[in-house]
């Protein structure tokens, strides 16, 4: 495992991932990097972070291009207009004149119809664009509010923070529990969860008067809300390895992390 960790560290230090993120690697190097990303969550995480940093740095160096470029591009991606129809010859001038008159009348009507359709289409497109922007704004706004609420909860003066640490085959396990007793709220953030064998999951337990009460099954990195009512009565938090989906009773012999709570008066 140490050799593997050293291999990952050497890979991250080599600069290959930095070159991959800007598209400067050869096909062979791409395969190597993509294998490393697929096999090692640390590399995946470093890759995601590098992508965010590239986006940020590129935007710090952003320069507004001339407006004509946009116009030219939009003209280039416009669908091609259909060819106009051609009309054949008529036998005599009366029929030609009649055809021209009819054609002019039709063209006039056609022009008005086309103008009307074009305007309607523009209204539909503008409305759709507006609705899309409105939808994006609402989604962004709600995401921002959720993040603000999470941040406010985590940073509140009376929120207690418990960092649970452990090692599974030399890989670190990091789970942070936040508990705000006055507000009656508790949640966990999962920073690192080493992979387990198939058919196994981590499970978080609260020790309430010597009895282990299940709080959550930890099988992904998403934040989770846990019962503040149970934490209020608990003396410590424990993480065990259980069968996939969690167990009804804790396998104490598989305990991987434990931390005492200072909630008991």
């Amino acid at each position: 495992m140490k050799i593997e960790n050293q291999h990952i560290e050497e890979f991250l230090q080599s600069g290959l991932l930095d070159r991959y993120v800007i598209g400067d690697t050869s096909d062979g190097e791409n395969i190597e990097v993509e294998n490393m990303i697929a096999q090692h969550p640390e590399v995946q995480s470093a890759y995601n972070q590098l992508q965010d940093e590239l986006y940020l740095y590129a935007n710090l160096n952003a320069v507004t291009p001339p407006e004509y470029i946009k116009e030219q591009l939009l003209n280039k991606v416009l669908p091609l207009k259909e060819d106009e129809s051609h009309y054949g010859n008529h036998e005599n001038w009366l029929s030609i004149a009649a055809a021209i008159v009819a054609l002019l009348a039709l063209s006039g009507l056609g022009y008005l119809y086309q103008q009307n359709s074009g305007l309607k289409q523009e209204i539909v497109e503008t409305t759709t664009q507006f609705e899309n922007l409105e939808r994006d704004y609402e989604l962004n706004d709600s995401q921002k509010r959720i993040l603000e609420l999470r941040l406010a909860f985590i940073e509140a003066g009376d929120t207690e923070k418990y960092l649970m640490r452990g090692y599974i085959k030399d890989e670190p396990l990091r789970v942070i529990a936040y508990y705000n007793q006055p507000a009656g709220k508790a949640q966990i953030e999962i920073a690192a969860l080493p992979p387990l064998e198939a058919g196994q999951d981590y499970q978080l337990w609260a020790d309430v008067d010597g009895e282990m009460v299940s709080l959550a099954v930890l099988n992904d990195l998403k934040p989770k809300t846990i019962s503040a009512e149970i934490l209020k009565k608990a003396s410590d938090l424990n993480i065990t390895i259980e069968k996939a989906g969690g167990s009804k009773q804790a396998s104490v012999e598989n305990l991987v992390s434990s931390i005492p709570l200072n909630t008991i008066p």
Binding site: N59, T64, P65, I69, Q129
Partner: peptide, 23 residues
Amino acid sequence: NDQRGMSLLYEHYGPALYGCALK
């Protein structure tokens, strides 16, 4: 192939990509 895609691409990424070429 919706033209609005190019418009949004240009508005949101154009300046950062132009900055890369200029740099």
